Amino acid sequence: MINSISVVRLPDRLPIEMAGVSINTSCDAWGSTFDFELADTSQLSLLKPSADGPRQVEVTLNGYVWTALVESYSTRREWGGSGINLTGRSRTALLAAPYAPGRVKVTTEDRSVAQLVTEELADTGFTASYDTVDWVVPAGAWFYDATTALDAISRLAEASGGVVQSDPAAQALQVRARYPESPWHWKERTPDHVVYEDVVSNESLQMRSAPLYDAVVVTGELAGKGVTCKVRRSGEAGQLFAPQASSPLISTAAAGTERGRNILSDRGEQALVELVIPLFGGPLRPGEVGRVKPLDLVEVVGQEGTWHGLCIAARTEARTNDKAVVIEQTITLERHYTDAD
């Protein structure tokens, strides 16, 4: 495989020479962070902010595209050479401070959560997909003060145990459950990726134990609008309770149940397994792995057996080495021994 790296400035698509690129993404963060090392220090002037705000770049690694805002830079001067490093974030940052203003809102009509997310993005140029449990929020139950659009959407997602994820390339975001499938269903679901251990160049593991909760109480906070739900893991006694969760948006049993399901998915014996693998470009052949994103379900096949893990973080790194390009992705998988394998 011949690796390829391309960085261009947007919207004029002016090529920018980079010696290295690192992209970090997590399921607990709404966007990616970017670190760049300029190969040609004279190009710094092309990436400094303009009157329209921070510069935007498009990064393509083995055919996979990311876009970013370039927000800061630092210079390095030392004997025999110098360098310039730049940092940035996903373009979704334009919906957050310091770029987006804080706003005030109180709903006066019933709205579904998906509708409320769409309303937050009106006239921003961004779109959203809502891919978790939806329900109707009564008038007056959704309100905030001095809150940016992205913070508001994050609060809407959190009500049912969801998270916000930025599209790697497009001006779009997605609201998804923190656990799209509960760990006890992972073995039954078709994985998003299959990783064979012979493509893994490095592996590390960190154990984690959580109480074996089998029940949780989820409650709405507003009198006359909220509901209280006892959510129990099916087939279990429902006697060891996780800490109670609440939100003014919990107004239906479906919302409370989904919040409880996500809470009870994080229990028992677990491990965070970090795998370093190549980033194969498409079309993929058997045994090759494309870009792995947070919340993707990964099946790992090795000599000791097959197991499943949920990707919770990914770091993609590209660097030039003696005129060759090396591209690797480091994926962190949340493995559940108690409820999965």
Rank of each mutant, 00 (worst) to 15 (best):
R178G: 00
T257S: 08
A177E: 11
A114P: 04
A128W: 04
V217Q: 11
A51D: 12
G235T: 08
Y144A: 06
W186K: 08
L150R: 00
N62E: 04
Q115P: 00
V59L: 14
A340E: 01
R291G: 02
I312K: 10
V301P: 01
P283L: 13
Y130P: 01
G281N: 05
R103I: 06
E37G: 04
P11S: 12
I5C: 12
A100N: 11
D214C: 07
L275E: 01
R189C: 05
Y196D: 10
K293M: 14
L272H: 08
D40W: 11
G220I: 02
L95W: 08
L121F: 07
H185K: 08
S26L: 10
T108M: 11
V175P: 02
P283A: 15
D12W: 06
D134G: 05
G224K: 09
P278C: 08
D28E: 12
P283D: 08
V218E: 01
Y64V: 10
T41A: 09
Y196W: 11
R232N: 05
D214G: 04
A324H: 10
A169N: 04
I312R: 13
R103Y: 04
L272T: 12
C229P: 00
N202V: 03
T320V: 13
V117R: 03
V326L: 12
A245M: 03
R103K: 15
Y196L: 15
S160N: 02
Q174H: 12
V289T: 08
V199K: 00
V137M: 05
D296F: 05
A157G: 01
G83F: 09
A96V: 05
S74N: 14
L86Q: 04
V194R: 08
R9W: 09
G80K: 14
L284V: 12
E78R: 09
V21L: 09
V136I: 15
L38P: 03
D266T: 03
A172M: 07
E299W: 06
V106T: 15
E288I: 05
G309N: 05
